[in-house]
Every structure is written in C-alpha cells, then in structure tokens.
Simulated scan of single mutants.
Amino acid sequence: MTTPLLFTPLTLRDLVLKNRVVVAPMHQYAGERGFATDWHLMNAGRYAAGGAGLFIVESTKVERRGCGTVGDLGLWDDAFIPGLKRIADFTRACGAKVGIQLGHSGRKSRTGRPWEGGRPLTPETANVPDWDRWELVAPSAIAPDARTPVPRALSRSEIAAVVQAFARATARAEQAGFDVVELHGAHGFLIHQFLNPQSNQRTDDYGGSAANRMRFALEVAEAARAAWPAHKPLFMRLSVDDGTGWDPAASVGLARELKARGIDVVDCSGGGMLPGPVPNAPPAYGYQVPYAAQLRQEAGIATMAVGLIVHARQAEAILQQGQADLVALARELLYNPNWPLDAAQKLGADPQFALVPPAAGWWLDKRRASAPGVQPSTFGTTT
C-alpha cells in the first residue's frame, strides 16, 4: 500500500520531519514573568507523544514590551533558555521535532487573558512590577479600536533595535536546541502592523508603498536568518488576507522576497486586524487552505496550511492536491492530542503503532494482535 503523503517524511534543509502533521503554536497564557512552567512541558509532551512530526511552541516574545498578556513566554534574556531547552529536549525525546514561534505584540500588548475578558490592562489590574517597561509601541500612533490606548510610534533607531531583538532571540532559540524558528508576522501583531496600510501610516522609508511597509518584515527575516544555523529551516507566519488592506497579492510579493532572504516555509493564516472571523473567508473546513495554495503556486515557496483542518482524509487531500507541503492543526489537537496516531490508523499508514513512543505503541499493537475486531473509539461505535 502506498504511504499517504501525510505520513511521508519531509526534508527542510537538514531537518527531516517524520510526517507532515504540525502542531500549530497556541498561546497558553501560562508563563510566569516570561518563564515556561510545567504546564508548557506537559503541553508539548502530549502532542509529541501523539505522533506529530513537528510541535511549535507558542509565540514567545523578543522584548518585554512585546508581551501580549501577563502569561506570555519570553526569550529576551538568557535566563529563559534553560526552561525552553527542557521543553525542546523533552519534545524530541517523545518523538517529534520542535520549533518555537518568535513574536512581538506591538500595539496589541498589555491585555488581559482572553478568558478573563481580554481587556486592556492598567497598572492596578496588571499587578506586575515592571509596568513602565511594558509599553505599547507600533509603527504609528494608531490604536486598533476605540477601547484600546494609543501606542507610541517607534523611532527609526528603535525599529533597528527591535530587528536586533528578533535576531538575539533567534540565537537564544538555537542555544535552547530548537529545530525550527517561526517568525510571527500575522494576526495583527507588530510585523503585521508594519505591513498593513491602516496601522502603518509612517512617512519615512518604513511606510507608504508596499515595498516600504514590507521593509521591517524583510529586515527581521534577514537578521533572524543570519543568527540561525544555515542547516536549520526558518518559517514565517503571515496573515495572507487581513481584509483591511493587506491581501493575497501583496502576500505573494512578500513571500517571494522572504524566500530570497532564506525563509523556507510560509505558514499561511489570515485576519487579525479586526475581531471575529477572517474577512472574505468565513469559517468552514479548510477555509484558509487556498492561501497556502496560492503562495505555493505563485511565490514558489513551501507552505503550511491551517484553518479548520479536522479530518485525516481532508488533510491528506490538501497534500495530494498540491495545496501545501505541511498541514498544521491547533484546536482539533486540543480536542484529540493523539490526532496523528488516529489519522495514521484511519489512512492505513501505521498498522503496528510505530508512530508513537513504545510505551504507548507496544500496548496498542498488542491489543490489535490479540483482539483484531476491536475498533478504537474515534472510529465510531459498532452498535
């Protein structure tokens, strides 16, 4: 039987992924003053042991003022390296490669956790010792909405400093032992704020034309690539269409430039400038997959598809149709951390459960051999 593409290895530079299933970065809001906790270790282990090829740690901030909430992870100091290295080492020990997403929230910083209302914080509600360091900055002094404080526009020298903050965090990610770095250029955060003409109304060479608005993203990519080993792949996540001025045609142009600067994979998402669903793409199965297909075809770059990818045959079809090189799941993996194991069974790719660590796979294979008529619960009932 031909191995499904979903479970065919993929080589990116010198990195070999055992399959094309990626655990997308998901904010846990569980950091303690930027440090990883046991929750993050457990979170990584459950997905890695479930059979995924690559697990990506949530958006980890390159500056203190880039933190979105009090629970964000940080990598702006060497002190954060040991905790993240523990996660990287443990993830690989469970059978998956491991990446980390690096980001800066810009004007979307300094907010409460979403289940606590997600409102802008004050010194009293934040209850942090370094409130003054947690400053709202952005390309321009424009708030995202009426309820949010107006950020301060970054000076040119500060822009250069933020670029270097991304580079230093990338170097720390290498020290922590990560296999992949993903730069977060989507969802209304700082890199995306520079790209969008509504949030970026600068009059210098970082604003105005599309080429100028792309300058910050490209400088970050160049600096990160220089700080990251040549044999390791570098990703960037984009909101391919945000519905407010940044569109797929612009993303194709940016993706071409990113490829020339050493970006290996574009993680194709959408939205983020406005609350709610992605404009022009109401939620439905695979609703953002066309973004990955367009950039793959028109920019000639490897892409990762995201967005309500739920079922095994759906994920396989995305790859078979050449719409993406990788598929990333998030909330469906929260529902079922063993989704890769389950998908492999449904596609007939792993009859002896070799995809997962032997502490689980040995027992599952023993049940298969001794009770061949038994179906796993995820296959539905037989009555």
Rank of each mutant, 00 (worst) to 15 (best):
P4R: 05
L5N: 04
P9T: 15
D14Q: 14
D14T: 14
L17P: 05
K18E: 08
N19G: 04
V23H: 15
V23D: 05
V23T: 14
A24L: 10
Q28F: 04
A30Q: 07
A36Y: 02
T37M: 03
D38A: 13
D38Y: 12
L41V: 13
M42Q: 07
M42P: 00
G45Q: 14
G45N: 10
R46P: 03
A49W: 13
G50P: 06
I56L: 07
I56D: 00
S59C: 04
T60H: 02
T60G: 08
K61G: 09
V62T: 11
R64Y: 14
R65F: 09
C67N: 13
T69H: 08
G71T: 09
D72Q: 01
F80C: 00
I81Q: 00
I81A: 02
I87M: 00
A88Q: 00
T91A: 02
A93K: 06
C94N: 13
K97C: 04
G99A: 00
L102K: 04
G103N: 14
H104Y: 11
S105C: 06
G106Y: 04
S109W: 14
G117D: 05
P120S: 07
L121E: 10
P123N: 02
W134S: 02
S140E: 05
A143W: 14
A146E: 14
T148I: 05
P151L: 07
L154G: 05
V163R: 02
A165N: 11
A167I: 08
A167L: 14
R172K: 10
R172M: 04
A173C: 00
E174H: 07
Q175S: 08
H184V: 05
F189D: 06
I191H: 10
F194H: 01
P197K: 12
Q198I: 08
N200H: 01
Q201Y: 08
Q201T: 15
R202Y: 11
T203L: 12
D204P: 03
D205Y: 02
G208D: 01
S209K: 03
L218Y: 05
L218V: 07
A221R: 04
E222W: 09
R225P: 14
A226W: 15
M236C: 06
R237F: 10
D242Y: 08
G243Y: 06
A255W: 02
I263N: 06
D267H: 14
G270R: 01
G272C: 03
M273Y: 01
L274N: 06
P282D: 09
A284M: 07
A284N: 02
Y285V: 05
Y287V: 01
V289K: 03
A293L: 09
A293P: 08
M304W: 04
G307W: 15
V310Y: 12
I318E: 10
L319R: 04
R331H: 09
R331K: 13
N338S: 13
P340G: 10
A344M: 15
Q352E: 15
P357G: 05
L364R: 15
K366C: 05
A369G: 07
S370T: 14
P372C: 12
V374S: 12
T378H: 10
F379S: 13
F379T: 10
F379V: 07
T381M: 12
